[in-house]
Design a protein around this nucleic acid. Structure first.
Length: 199
DNA sequence: CATTTGATGTTCT
DNA sequence: GAACATCAAATGC
């Protein structure tokens, strides 16, 4: 039940962090609506300046991408297709615009409030980056907010994925990125309910 | 089933 | 004015 410390997010191997995030716990308590928590089951790494799929490709600085240049440990939330709030975790040190998109979660607690937010009865799996933000109450209001506070944060419950539970593929929806669209930067965790707890 | 389409708003050219 | 790290509902087999 350890809240991930700032040092975790400031690691410089963003691909390794994206893989390591599988099995970590995403927790939110927004607007005092109550706590909900979920296992992270899918991530995508975006490697900033050298990654054509990244908003910050070529170190592009705009009002939006500024968040990615902050030091690791903050949220990068932006609106996609006018409807969906997408939640990213900023990594690496200040000035290096790396980020990790969270694409799917497996809900552990807070089913009641999640059911209210989404209008669904089945609140176990949220596969899709726009779905999980809706379930957890994350919006662009949380852009640039720290992941070490008491609104949105991550915890380590010592759930260790087996190697065969992890699938690595190309990223989704980034065809515009040319050859970089083929890079194996997407990490998927199978059978999250079968994770074994070390410790 | 698979495929298409409509919703929707912010950013950047 | 086009593009966009998407989703759910509608349409076409």
């Amino acid at each position: 039940m350890l809240k991930l410390p700032l040092a975790y997010y400031r690691q410089e191997d963003t691909l390794a962090v994206a893989r390591d995030l599988l099995g970590k716990i995403l927790v939110s308590n927004v607007n005092g609506e109550g706590i909900c928590s979920a296992i992270i089951t899918e991530t995508e790494a975006y490697l900033g300046a050298v990654d054509k799929a990244s908003h910050a490709y070529g170190n592009r600085r705009t009002p939006r991408t500024n968040t990615m240049f902050l030091a690791g440990g903050v949220a990068y939330v932006y609106l996609c297709y006018g409807i969906h709030h997408l939640f990213n975790i900023v990594t690496h040190k200040e000035g290096i615009p790396h980020a990790i998109l969270v694409r799917a979660v497996y809900m552990l607690s807070g089913h009641e409030i999640v059911s209210q937010r989404t209008g669904k009865q089945n609140t176990q799996l949220f596969d899709g980056p726009g779905k999980l933000t809706r379930a957890m109450g994350i919006t662009t209001r949380h852009n640039a907010s720290p992941l070490t506070g008491n609104t949105i944060w991550l915890e380590d419950h010592y759930l260790q994925p087996q190697k065969q539970q992890i699938i690595i593929t190309a990223r989704v929806g980034v065809e515009y990125a040319g050859d970089d669209a083929l890079l194996p930067y997407r990490f998927i965790l199978n059978d999250p309910q079968r994770l074994i707890c070390f410790k």
